[in-house]
């Protein structure tokens, strides 16, 4: 079963990565990043069971904490950009380009 779980995790990770590349809405891009983090967690939990120790589950727990902090900051930044530029599209935030 380990292989099955790992392939599922790989598929979810790749879908999330493709979403980050394709989508333009900053919030949806953020959701795709969350999807990639979740896929990694699945792989960690699977490896924890494969190797018979709990360190994988522990790392997944830490990943969840970091993801929660990241979501808070990221969404605050998106709200701030939206307030000044009236847009949540990643194409519109291009002032650093020049």
């Amino acid at each position: 079963m380990t292989t099955h779980y790992l392939v599922l995790s790989a598929l979810l990770f790749a879908i999330g990565g493709a979403g980050v590349l394709v989508r333009r809405n900053a919030i949806v891009v953020f959701m795709c990043v969350e999807l990639m983090l979740n896929a990694c967690n699945l792989a960690f939990v699977t490896f924890a069971r494969q190797h018979g120790n709990l360190d994988g589950q522990l790392i997944a727990f830490f990943v969840m904490v970091v993801a929660a902090a990241e979501v808070v900051i990221g969404l605050a930044i998106i709200v701030m950009i939206f307030r000044t530029r009236r847009s949540a599209s990643v194409d519109d935030a291009n002032l650093l380009k020049y």
Binding site: T3, L6, A10, L11, A14, G17, A18, V22
Partner: peptide
């Protein structure tokens, strides 16, 4: 995305 999925899935 498709290439990456194939790479990871085949590897795993």
């Amino acid at each position: 995305g498709l290439g990456f999925a194939a790479l990871l899935a085949l590897g795993a």
